[in-house]
Design a protein around this nucleic acid. Structure first.
Length: 274
DNA sequence: CAATCGTCCTGCGGGC
DNA sequence: TGCCCGCAGGACGATT
């Protein structure tokens, strides 16, 4: 499941391999991921367009094309973007093939088919709530400790689902919310309104730390995530709680527990996360 | 009104 | 061993 670090890894690789290329052909084998417009219109509007840049907002990958269009991907659980040199073997689960004028190709693949693809104009970007409603970027310079405190102020409910709420902070999902809470020593079910300033600061620091570290290791290949070259991320061995049920906590040695919190599988240490 | 549920979908794991 | 059931999950809309 691609979260901020995985999407950022894809973005950085796409800058090197896809930026500036012109779309010669769009082959849609399964158009179910294309939102709002028809596959026919999607194909028509993309043909001949140049990918001007690769940007990211939360878990969304945003490709500005020739104005006014933006091609937007949300990979959800099992979406993949895979780049192939001319003539290279095709990956599995391909749904859309973008062929560039130099005969290199970008494959959109998706196993479970939850990923979203949008083609929006500049105007639509500003009005459609998809990206407009996202909270701040955790790795931007504007995301200070004060900003984080302000985002949590007057909120109630458990801290973990709140960290995953995209309108509170953008880009955090099931893996990194758990990892940052473990690092901070905070139980995922703690009520936000009862966290001390000191605890909020610990979560803030842990969150930035874990995101930066995960980007450095090119993300976590949990579930189906693969990078632009079809390779796995290298962060899984560095995960401290996620997927470690029954194993001993790396901070205190107690067995890691797993519990469903707000409908999502959550790993934590009940001894050192209070 | 905040929290939970259902929905989309398919690979895979547990259980017998 | 092999089959089958049901779980997993991001985000949104419906429901309680």
């Amino acid at each position: 499941m691609p979260e901020l670090p995985e999407v950022e890894t894809i973005r950085q690789d796409m800058i090197k391999k896809v930026k500036g290329k012109k779309i010669a052909k769009v082959e849609i084998r399964n158009g179910k991921n294309i939102r709002i417009i028809s596959p026919q219109e999607f194909e028509r509007r993309l043909k001949g367009k140049i990918i001007k840049d690769i940007k990211r907002r939360g878990k969304y990958l945003i490709l500005p094309l020739d104005p006014p269009d933006f091609l937007i991907f949300h990979l959800k659980l099992t979406g993949r973007l895979l780049f192939s040199p001319a003539g290279a073997k095709e990956p599995d689960y391909v749904r859309i093939v973008f062929t560039f004028t130099d005969n290199t190709r970008l494959f959109f693949a998706d196993i479970r088919g939850f990923a979203d693809i949008y083609l929006l104009t500049q105007n639509e970007m500003e009005t459609v709530p998809i990206i407009k409603n996202l909270g701040p970027e955790p790795l931007s310079p504007e995301f200070t400790l004060d900003k984080f405190k302000q985002r949590l102020k007057d909120k109630k409910g458990k801290i973990k689902p709140l960290l995953m709420n995209q309108s509170v902070i953008a880009g955090i999902g099931n893996i990194y919310s758990q990892e940052s809470l473990h690092r901070a020593g905070i139980h995922p079910e703690r009520n936000v309104s009862k966290l001390t300033d000191r605890e909020i600061e610990a979560i803030y620091r842990s969150l930035l730390e874990v995101l930066q570290e995960a980007i450095k290791y090119r993300g976590s290949s949990v579930d189906a995530y693969l990078d632009l070259d079809g390779k796995e991320g290298k962060y899984v061995p560095h995960l401290r709680v996620y997927g470690r049920e029954g194993k001993s906590c790396l901070r205190c040695g107690s067995p890691i527990k797993k519990k469903k919190i707000a409908g999502r599988g959550t790993y934590f240490c009940s001894k050192c996360q209070k």
